[in-house]
Amino acid sequence: MDKWTAQIEAYVDGELSSAEMKEMDAHLRTCSACVADVLQQVQFKRALQSAGRRYTPSADFRQKVRQSIAARPRRSFARYWLPATAVVLVLFAGTVALSIREQRLALQNTYSELADLHVTALASPNPVDVVSSDRHTVKPWFEGKIPFVFNLPELQNPDIVLVGGRVAYLGQAPGAELIYLIRKHQVSVFIFQERAVGPLPESDSTMQRQQETFNFRSWSQNGLHYFVIGGVAGGDLSKIADLFRNAGRL
């Protein structure tokens, strides 16, 4: 394939630099084969552009989504809080306070996203994609689906039951979500690669959101970041966290 053929797609997509674009324009004045290619690809692009616009939402659905958004408590403070924080961060750049604040903020955002994933699992009739209480079934299921491996603890406490697992995304990073029942309360354990989620401090905390209270445990071990979240007492979460900490040492 010559240089020109290789550049035709980027040319048609308008992705060449202006110098390359000029060069290609000049070449096209002398090469009928490339002109034919360009014309064909432009036509293909146009056809695809209109063929791709196939589905239109119904008025009912549009109304439904609008209402569901309007019904949610507005967190308008978030809109102003973010730029305000940015200004504060610039003013105090370089101070120790900055790094602590940044870490806390990252942790809060992460917790908020994980709480959403946990609530989705709670609300779903099929919260897991691999349904099994056997860790030897659940762990291999994740192989090839996420870019790391982890150890699942052996459960000896009859109060804690493994329900299954699914792939979860935090930001853009894929990870594992394991769902446990502890005295019939659902608890999610999330495992992500530390380098994918960034450095986060080890933390035991509680998050109050609407009518729900979630307890969190989080820590890093062997390059992985673990988060345990659930609406159960902190002591119960610590039990699951300890099981994972011990399994991670193996």
Binding site: V65, R75, L82, A86, N109, E113
Partner: peptide, 24 residues
């Protein structure tokens, strides 16, 4: 279409919840 409706609705809910993670 039904699955698409669920997906779009969930996307808007997540986008609203996660607006703090959107960096201007």
């Amino acid at each position: 279409r039904t699955e698409a409706e669920d997906l779009v609705q969930e996307t808007y809910v997540k986008a609203l919840r996660g607006f703090t993670s959107f960096q201007s």
